[in-house]
Design a protein around this nucleic acid. Structure first.
Lengths: 212, 212
DNA sequence: TAGATTGTTAATCGATTAACAATC
DNA sequence: TAGATTGTTAATCGATTAACAATC
């Protein structure tokens, strides 16, 4: 990792996919790969791969290609997967507990340290080794443990209520599953949206379109 | 809905967001809106809104703007939200049952008609009014009920096993939560990927980058 | 050395934004 | 009619692809 300055989000969004493919290659014992071969497997152009990687440095070698293990590690580095950003999760409903239990946070740069809900009956329940805490204790919790990231698995209205509050408490990043568009009017924070409904509607369009 | 021919995916992906904002406007009693005002609320340009909409037809009126209710309905139409594409879900684990219970399929163009898993102990359990069926009965089920869409909440290996098989059984669209890149080498089908891990890694990068 | 493949510059393509005539 | 705002064309900007000299 070396150059970099304002790499476009289009490039960034391709990095996790490179990372996955390189991980798979490693598992199958491939230790060296050319941009041409990787492009073929991924269904993209070799030019794009080389351009993308060169936003961050020259990881390859002319006449040889790329060392799979090294490149894999470089991308992990670029993405910050070795970090342990403290993470809290809001909403211990269906979606919240699925996210809490299924995601491999430790492999992706995060450490889940707290789960919160407003529903009395859920408080105290243990999910992934963590007790569900009352949302009313979140200010104190943040002051003590200083998480930098929050996952929103709460309804739109609650999201609206907590977004600014958490930002004021030092939360810099939101992984947002709610229907709220958090970022608007707040430049200090970063947001990654997962709008499942939008995704499903997009699929609806694609099918609708394909069946014509 | 009128013109249209190969509208770019960038445009399509913005439609659900327009749809959400228009729905919110309707709820708050706004019946008329200009591209300028909508752009302001959404944090995009008015030009983009007008360009996007004009891929499908002229829904506005000079000097007036857009009728919110009508535009909302037009977009629903474009996206095919009034359809009832038959949908099956593979994988009744944590994620699968969350998707099954939480999504508003009927409002987004789909009708969930079957849930499948390979795990013996889950078979017969009822989720959203549907019994979990053995994955072994899926061929017969598809021949009988002819679903056109499948949700993949199964591991990569299983996804690899079932993608082609389902395509052969008439499945045209996949909502893919697995780590497999389904589409490669199959032009007949449409795929909408939800790579939660990729999304989380992207967030990791953004935070990493913002904290610099 | 000859062959392969990168890193990087240049060319192309597509998407976004600006401008404005048409028109309600 | 005058003012507002669209639909649409033109200009700009950014991203992808192609080409090729550098070099392992």
């Amino acid at each position: 990792m070396s150059k970099r300055e304002d790499v476009s989000i289009s490039v960034i969004r391709r990095l996790p996919r490179y990372y996955r493919f390189l991980g798979d290659l490693l598992k199958t014992g491939v230790y060296r790969i050319s941009s041409k071969e990787l492009a073929l497997r991924m269904g993209i152009t070799a030019s794009q791969i080389r351009q993308d990687l060169n936003c961050f440095g020259g990881f390859g070698q002319q006449g040889y290609g790329y060392n799979v293990e090294q490149l894999h590690a470089e991308i992990a580095n670029i993405l910050g997967l070795d970090k342990k950003y403290k993470l809290i999760l809001l909403g211990a409903g269906n979606l919240g507990r699925t996210i809490a239990t299924q995601m491999k946070f430790e492999e992706q740069g995060f450490e889940l340290i707290g789960i919160f809900d407003k529903k009395e009956s859920l408080i105290g329940e243990v999910i992934r080794g963590l007790p569900v805490r009352s949302i009313d204790t979140i200010d104190e919790f943040c002051k003590t443990y200083q998480p930098v990231t929050a996952v929103f698995c709460i309804p739109k209205n609650s999201a609206l209520e907590y977004a600014d509050r958490l930002a004021a408490l030092g939360i810099k990043g939101f992984w947002n599953f709610s229907h709220l568009d958090i970022s608007i009017g707040n430049d200090d924070i970063v947001v990654e949206n997962v709008h499942l409904g939008d995704s499903l509607m997009t699929l609806s369009y694609k099918i609708h379109d394909a069946l014509k």
